[in-house]
Lab assay of single mutants.
Amino acid sequence: GSPGIQSFLPPGWEMRIAPNGRPFFIDHNTKTTTWEDPRLK
C-alpha cells in the first residue's frame, strides 16, 4: 500500500476531514487548526 498523506505532514500535525468534505489541518504543537496545508508554506 502507499503511505498515507499523514506521513508527509510536519511533526505534531494531523489532517482531518471536515463535515463538508474539506480537509483541514490540526497543529497539536500550538493547539490550532487551519485550512492551509502546512507543507505549502
Rank of each mutant, 00 (worst) to 15 (best):
F25Y: 11
T32S: 08
G21I: 00
I26Q: 02
M15R: 06
P19V: 08
S7H: 13
R22Y: 08
E36T: 11
S7K: 12
L9G: 01
G21M: 04
T32L: 08
Q6Y: 03
P23E: 08
T32M: 10
I26G: 00
P10G: 04
S7N: 14
L40S: 11
T34W: 07
T30C: 08
K31Q: 13
K41P: 15
D37L: 05
F25I: 00
I5M: 13
G12W: 05
F24I: 09
W35H: 04
N20A: 02
D27P: 00
E14A: 06
G12T: 02
K41G: 15
K31H: 13
P23N: 07
P38V: 03
T34K: 02
T34A: 03
T33N: 06
I5C: 15
D37N: 03
R39E: 01
Q6H: 12
P3Y: 08
A18I: 03
L9F: 06
P19L: 11
G12L: 03
F8A: 15
P3H: 12
K31R: 11
F25L: 01
G4E: 14
P23Q: 10
P23R: 12
H28P: 05
T30A: 07
Q6P: 13
F25K: 00
G12D: 02
T34Q: 08
T33L: 13
S2E: 13
K31E: 09
G1W: 13
P11G: 08
P23I: 13
G4Y: 06
E36P: 00
I26D: 00
N20Q: 03
T33Q: 10
L9E: 01
S2H: 12
P3S: 11
G1N: 12
R39M: 06
G21Y: 01
T34I: 05
A18C: 15
N29Y: 09
G21S: 03
G1I: 11
K31I: 05
G4K: 11
P19Y: 09
D27H: 08
P10M: 06
G21E: 02
P3Q: 12
F25Q: 00
L40W: 11
G21W: 01
P3I: 13
D27F: 06
T34G: 03
P19D: 07
G4N: 13
R22W: 09
I26Y: 14
L9Q: 01
S2M: 13
I17F: 12
P3W: 08
D37Y: 07
R22Q: 10
I17A: 04
S7A: 14
P11F: 13
W35D: 04
G12A: 03
T32V: 09
T33C: 15
G12I: 01
T30W: 03
P19F: 10
T30L: 06
W35I: 04
W13R: 00
P38I: 04
E36C: 15
H28L: 09
P38H: 01
I5D: 13
T30H: 07
P3T: 14
W35T: 05
D37K: 06
P11N: 11
W35A: 02
T32R: 11
K41H: 15
D27W: 03
P19K: 13
K41Q: 15
I17Y: 12
I5E: 13
G12K: 03
D37W: 08
F24M: 07
R39K: 02
I17D: 01
G4Q: 13
M15Q: 06
T30P: 00
K31T: 07
K41N: 15
G1Q: 12
A18S: 10
L40A: 11
I5F: 13
D27M: 02
T32F: 10
R39L: 05
P11C: 15
T34H: 08
S7E: 14
P38S: 01
P19I: 08
E14P: 00
P23D: 02
R16G: 06
R16S: 06
A18R: 05
W13A: 00
R16W: 06
F25R: 00
I5W: 12
P10R: 08
W35M: 05
T32W: 08
G1E: 11
T32N: 07
I17K: 07
S2P: 14
K41T: 15
G4H: 13
D27N: 11
T33F: 14
K31M: 13
F24A: 02
K31N: 14
F24Q: 06
E14T: 10
G1R: 09
P19R: 14
N29E: 07
T33M: 15
K41A: 15
K31V: 05
S2W: 08
T33P: 02
S7Q: 13
L40Q: 12
S2G: 13
R16M: 08
P38R: 01
G4S: 10
L40R: 07
S7R: 12
W35V: 03
G4W: 05
N20I: 02
L9A: 01
G12F: 05
K31C: 15
R16Q: 07
G21H: 05
T30Q: 06
T30V: 03
A18E: 05
L9D: 01
E14W: 02
K31F: 09
G4M: 08
M15H: 02
P3K: 12
S7I: 12
G4A: 13
W35Q: 03
R39Y: 04
N29R: 07
K41E: 15
I26M: 06
G21T: 04
N20C: 14
N20F: 04
I17E: 04
N29M: 08
T30Y: 05
R22I: 10
D37T: 04
H28C: 15
N20M: 04
F8L: 13
P10Q: 04
T33D: 02
W13V: 02
T30S: 09
W13Y: 03
F25N: 00
S7T: 13
A18Y: 05
G4R: 10
G21N: 04
I17N: 04
R22M: 10
R22E: 08
D37C: 06
G21Q: 03
E14L: 04
I26V: 09
R16L: 08
F8E: 15
H28A: 06
P19M: 10
E36N: 11
P10I: 05
D37R: 06
P10A: 05
P19C: 15
D27K: 02
S2A: 14
E14M: 05
E36R: 14
K41V: 15
M15C: 11
N20H: 05
N20R: 02
F24K: 03
R39H: 04
W35E: 04
P10W: 07
N20T: 07
F24N: 01
P11D: 12
N20E: 03
R39D: 02
G4V: 11
L9I: 04
P23Y: 12
I5Q: 14
F25S: 00
W35L: 06
S7C: 15
A18P: 03
L40N: 14
I5T: 13
R16E: 04
E14S: 09
Q6R: 08
P3R: 08
L9S: 01
K31P: 03
K41I: 15
N29F: 09
N29I: 10
E14F: 05
N29Q: 07
F25G: 00
E14N: 02
G1M: 11
D37E: 05
D27Q: 04
T34M: 05
P38W: 01
N20P: 02
Q6D: 14
E14Q: 06
M15Y: 06
G12P: 04
D37H: 06
F8Q: 15
P23L: 10
W35Y: 09
S7G: 15
S2L: 13
I17V: 09
R39C: 09
M15P: 00
E14V: 08
G21F: 03
P11T: 10
L9W: 04
I5L: 13
W13I: 02
H28T: 09
Q6G: 14
P23V: 14
P38L: 01
T33W: 15
I26N: 01
S7D: 14
M15S: 03
G1H: 12
N20K: 03
R16K: 10
W13S: 00
A18F: 05
M15V: 08
M15E: 07
N20G: 09
D37A: 06
I17H: 07
P10H: 05
N29H: 07
E36W: 14
T30N: 10
K31Y: 08
A18T: 09
G12M: 05
W35R: 02
T33V: 15
A18Q: 05
T30R: 07
F25W: 11
T32D: 03
M15T: 03
E14I: 07
K41Y: 15
N29W: 09
K31S: 10
W13H: 00
F24S: 02
W13T: 00
P11W: 10
H28E: 05
P11E: 12
R22F: 08
T34E: 01
P3G: 12
N20L: 03
P38Q: 02
G21A: 02
L9Y: 02
D37I: 04
